[in-house]
């Protein structure tokens, strides 16, 4: 059986335009800062059941401010 990869999320607040689409897609992973409305990462390593929603968040982010990296577990 192949190893399950862990998805790691990184956000770039410098690129974020505060659309909030990521919060709609995966509220357990993303939030918006109360003062400036820009992205806040709640869980840099989301659980596997959130993976699909996180991928959707990447897809709908208008500013390209979310990146995913996969690491394969040893």
């Amino acid at each position: 059986m192949s190893q399950v990869g862990v998805v790691r999320v990184a956000v770039d607040r410098g690129r974020c335009c505060g659309s909030g689409n990521c919060v709609v897609a995966a509220p357990e992973v993303f939030d918006q800062d109360d003062t400036d409305g820009l992205v806040l990462l709640r869980r840099p390593e989301p659980p596997p059941e959130a993976a699909e929603r996180v991928r959707r968040a990447v897809e709908v982010c208008p500013a390209g401010a979310i990146r995913l990296t996969s690491t394969t577990q040893p």
Partner: peptide, 12 residues
Amino acid sequence: LRRMLTAEFMIK
């Protein structure tokens, strides 16, 4: 300018 408004219109 946009960033002065983003928090105003966020979902919460």
